[in-house]
Design a protein around this nucleic acid. Sequence first.
DNA 1: ACTCCGATTACGGAAATCTGTAAGGACATC
DNA 2: GATGTCCTTACAGATTTCCGTAATCGGAGT
Lengths: 221, 221
Amino acid sequence: MFTKVLVAEDYEIANQGIVKVLNDEVGIYNIHEAQYCDDAYLKFRKAHQDKEPFELLITDLSFKEDHKVQTRTSGIELIQDIRNIQPDINIIVYSQESRPDKINMLFQKLNINGFVCKGQHAIKDLVNCIQGVYKGDTVLPTEVTNENTDNIINLDDFDIMLLEELADGFTKKEIVQKLKKQKISPNSESTIDKRVSKLFDDFKAKNTTHLVAIVKDLGLL
Amino acid sequence: MFTKVLVAEDYEIANQGIVKVLNDEVGIYNIHEAQYCDDAYLKFRKAHQDKEPFELLITDLSFKEDHKVQTRTSGIELIQDIRNIQPDINIIVYSQESRPDKINMLFQKLNINGFVCKGQHAIKDLVNCIQGVYKGDTVLPTEVTNENTDNIINLDDFDIMLLEELADGFTKKEIVQKLKKQKISPNSESTIDKRVSKLFDDFKAKNTTHLVAIVKDLGLL
DNA sequence: ACTCCGATTACGGAAATCTGTAAGGACATC
DNA sequence: GATGTCCTTACAGATTTCCGTAATCGGAGT
């Protein structure tokens, strides 16, 4: 089993919870903790330089900001930086995130080894994940594997741009003006209307506000 | 110090974190855990009937629903029911809630003894709170006592409800109809307008869509 | 009792949204 | 070349949003 583990999680008590599970359920005792991304990175780099590297990183994704100014603000940046100095490190993300698209992105772009959803029954999930990753498996959360990926909606760049502009509170007329100024076509109000109406159908949204809320929830924005 | 404590928290690992802090930092070892409100209530009643009552309840407010059907769905109901059978029990709420109004309500209406915000530095807060409550004090969280409510926007339940309805794509007229059907006041279209306009000011939003996007990003919905 | 203040409510109007129909152009297929 | 389809654009009308003004009500206060 892994012997040296780094836990990066900003909430102290959640941090302690992970440590206790590693102690009691997995039998890992050499556990180092970090509450900030930068702190985690420094501990990691030092261990690597001292030739006593960590074998596993368990990290959250979101880190609350406070008085300490951080160069890294999210677990994603932390993972990228750590992978740069130790490509073969095992990484498990332990996060509230439950959106399949976002979780899949972590596996595809960051090559994480496992993902555990914060939740009611996270102990079993976390233990399974650690044991699976130790065996060399890639461990997806049950929440994602169960997902039937039938209803995937394909959004092109234009759709994404529209959604972003709408989420930023611009009216269709303002969007049209922007498009014309940038000489991007299509750029008629009528076409924008049609495009957005199509998105309504795709996402079963009743109006623009509903559409943006749905897309935000899906993590596409 | 307290010797027998009940911890009610639906997330297993957070639960473990509290237990570890009680063990390591406070020196309490007779700790019972519950992941559901009803479960907590039953453990509490049994201990009371067996003349081995708990001296302290540490509970979350929100409990996720799953396959187990619960008669109590929130920590508030749990507290009320427990106070009914053992009025002098000490109660500490450990919750994500950060709205001063809501926290004050807990002290005034439910007579809780302490409140700790889930957060980055919750260990010290929790330890202080337990020690204060043991001495007979009422321990408010620093977040409330500090009263630096400058850039904190106070949303009451009505505002949240409005935002949720808007994010679900309902028009103001539909919301008004719902409110009238449920006999919730205020329920005039004009007041809804005013309320939402105030939210526009608070969040510097240009329109409803923008508002919902901002609030979603802040994680308030 | 009095005023002051905030919340609620009513109403109106300009702007924006949403939903139709319809016409024109690009492009592939037969 | 004829045909059909898809995308773009124009326009029009009903609905909704957004933002004023103004009247009303209830509580809190010197």
